[in-house]
C-alpha cells in the first residue's frame, strides 16, 4: 500500500487545517468585510479596510514603529546575546549549567510577569532604573521609559534574549576548538581569533537567532501593551484594540493579516539571503 504514508498524515493535516488554515482564511476573509458603528459587520467584499490600512499615514507610522522596535530589539539581542552565549560556552562545568539556567530561566516565567517587572523598574520618575542612572551620574534628569519606544525595546530585548543566546550557543557548540588553536598557532591574538575565526563561523547562528527575535518582537503583544500602553501602539496592540474596544473586527483583521504578510516576507527574504551567502561554506 503506497498510499499508507499519506493516509497516516491525514489526521495531522486535518488538525493543522482546523487550527491554523481555517482561522487564518477566515481572518483574511474578514478583512474584506464592511463595518459600521451601528450596522456592525456586513459580510460583503470591499477593499475599504485595506485602502485604509495601506493609505492612512496613521497606520504607516504604526507599522514603521512596529518594525523599528523589532529592528532595535534584534540589534540589542544580538549585541548582548552573542557575547553572552560565547562567555557561557567558555565557562567550566558547574558554572556553565548554573548560568544557562539563569539565562533560560526567564522563559519559564510568564511574559506578563517579566514585563510588569520592567514596568516597576521603569515606573515614574522614581523608578529604580532612573534612580540608578542618576546615582551613577550618567543622567541629570529622569528619562522617560514608560510609554516610550526605548522602554519597549529594552523590555522586549530582555524578554527575547534567551532565543538569541540559544541560537548562538547551538552554533558555538559545533565549533572545533582546535580551529581557534590553529589560528593562535599562526600568530593571531585573542581579539583577532574572535573577529576573524569565531564570529564568521557563528554568523549563521546569529542570523537565525535574529530572524526568530525579529519575528517575535514584531508580533509581540504583552510587552508593548504594558510598557507602551494605549499611547504607543504597535501592530499587534492596534489589532487587539480594533477587535475588543472599537469592535471593528474587519479593520483589525486587515492589520493582523498585513503584519503576518510583512513578517513572512521579511523572514523568507532573510532566510534566502543567509542560505545564498553561506551555501558554499556550510552546506
Amino acid at each position: 500500500m503506497r498510499s499508507a504514508p499519506y493516509l497516516l498524515c491525514v489526521p495531522a493535516l486535518v488538525l493543522f487545517a482546523g487550527v491554523v488554515i481555517v482561522p487564518l482564511a477566515m481572518t483574511v476573509l474578514l478583512s474584506f468585510h464592511d463595518w459600521g458603528q451601528y450596522k456592525g459587520i456586513e459580510p460583503v467584499f470591499i477593499l475599504k479596510n485595506w485602502q485604509e490600512v495601506l493609505g492612512d499615514s496613521y497606520f504607516h507610522e504604526m507599522f514603521a514603529r512596529t518594525f523599528r522596535i523589532a529592528f532595535f530589539v534584534t540589534l540589542l539581542a544580538a549585541v548582548f546575546g552573542a557575547p553572552e552565549a560565547y562567555i557561557l560556552n567558555r565557562m567550566r562545568s558547574p558554572w556553565r549549567g548554573i548560568f544557562l539556567l539563569v539565562i533560560l530561566g526567564p522563559l519559564l516565567i510568564s511574559v506578563v510577569a517579566r514585563t510588569l517587572g520592567w514596568a516597576l523598574l521603569f515606573g515614574g520618575n522614581s523608578g529604580l532604573v532612573n534612580k540608578a542612572l542618576m546615582g551613577l551620574g550618567l543622567i541629570s534628569a529622569p528619562l522617560p521609559f514608560m510609554f516610550t519606544e526605548t522602554g519597549v525595546v529594552i523590555a522586549l530585548a530582555h524578554v527575547l534574549m534567551p532565543y538569541m543566546v540559544l541560537a548562538v550557543w547551538a552554533s558555538l557548540q559545533r565549533l572545533d576548538p582546535q580551529v581557534e588553536n590553529a589560528a593562535v598557532a599562526l600568530g593571531a591574538g585573542p581579539f583577532t581569533v574572535l573577529r576573524r575565526i569565531v564570529l564568521p563561523q557563528v554568523m549563521p547562528g546569529i542570523l537565525s537567532g535574529a530572524v526568530i527575535v525579529f519575528a517575535l518582537a514584531a508580533s509581540a503583544f504583552a510587552t508593548p501593551a504594558i510598557i507602551g500602553g494605549r499611547r504607543l501602539k504597535v501592530a499587534s496592540t492596534l489589532a487587539y484594540d480594533e477587535f475588543l474596544n472599537t469592535l471593528n473586527w474587519p479593520l483589525g483583521a486587515a492589520v493582523a493579516v498585513l503584519l503576518l504578510l510583512a513578517l513572512v516576507a521579511i523572514v523568507w527574504g532573510a532566510n534566502r539571503l543567509v542560505e545564498r551567502r553561506y551555501a558554499q561554506v556550510f552546506a
Partner: peptide
C-alpha cells in the same frame, strides 16, 4: 606565548578555517 612561538601545526582534525577559501586559509599566518 603560543601565538609567538612560530611553530607550524597540523592538527589531527586538520582544523581548517571553514569560512575561508584555501588561499585565505594558507595566507592567514
Amino acid at each position: 606565548r603560543p601565538a609567538r612561538r612560530g611553530l607550524g601545526i597540523v592538527f589531527q582534525s586538520y582544523a581548517l578555517f571553514p569560512h575561508m577559501t584555501v588561499a585565505e586559509n594558507v595566507g592567514f599566518g
